[in-house]
Amino acid sequence: MNTTKSYYPSLLILGVFLIVSFVVNLSLGSVSIPAKEVIYALLDRPVADESWRYIIVNYRLPKSLTAILVGSGLSLSGLLMQTLFRNPLAGPFVLGISSGASLGVALLIMGTSIFGGVIGFGLGYSAGTIIAATVGSFLVLSAIMIVASAVKDTMTLLIIGLMFGSITSSVVSVLSYFTQKEQLQQYIFWSFGSLGNLSWNQLLLLCVFVVLGVLIAIYCIKPLNALLLGEHYAFSLGINVKRSRYLIIISTSLLAGSITAFAGPIAFIGLAVPHLSRQLFPTQNHKIMIPATVCFGAMIMLLCDTVAQLPGSTLTLPINAITSLVGAPVIIWLLVRKRKMIF
């Protein structure tokens, strides 16, 4: 009768897979490190080659942890948006978060070359882009929140979010048109996304934002489940729909906003992973879907990162290309089997 309990074993298995992908991700790369040594290094036990410990602790561990935060955060915000907007094609960026971040970074990188200013670069490249992305997504999101308080209908909000996205991306196009090729290249590299640029301090900051977003999402489990029946039914079940809507948007903003600021606009994960989770866990109960999506997202991101490293070579592919390579076929597959589409 209690339908949620039957999913606990599957969740446990998913957790085990997550740990395995974590170790695999740490052990593979330009230098291959045996899994046993990876675990020793993590446990602070002596390892065969001390340089391995250096690689793992200073290079691969922050990157893997970033992958976990990015994957789980984006997937969760995708799930939240799909439930809120009752739309299987909604993702973490439908509210214009990534377009806002792109605009901020575009203004920083390309605006300086056009207007001749020296904004941001004094802060160092990485910190400058993080701040620009944060400010950009915050501004776009604030605009949308103001609109959200004026419109009653959630669907209108979705369209308005997409419109804001179009506006910002066309501003970016105009900037790109007038900019010099070095700056354009720099911007394009940012838009590829990157998991490896974070210092331990930045990682900690990202972690705080993501955990906060996840906690708000957990607090919203009950309203999220009620929203599965639509807003009118949710209201009649005693849910404060407007307040829940705000909380869900805030959680998504914290997750998707901070991730985009630190790792760039990572595509498709947020859209695809909730659908993948629904295939594995045929329930819509967010009590199951939230942990499932978080674990699945982290796992997929670790796998994508492992592939992007092209194990055994010194080459690294842009992470965004890999996530889309995984994500796009999923969307196509979903559309093809639409007759039985699980949403």
Binding site: M1, T3, R86, K222, N225, A226, L228, L229, G230, H232, Y233, L237, G238, I239, R278, P282, T283, Q284, N285, I342, F343
Partner: peptide
């Protein structure tokens, strides 16, 4: 109006009434 996600089991829908 129907419900937006029909991917809910009968039991889940009825149990939501207990919210």
């Amino acid at each position: 109006e129907g419900i937006p996600t029909k991917n809910l089991s009968v039991l889940e829908v009825i149990a939501l009434g207990r919210q």
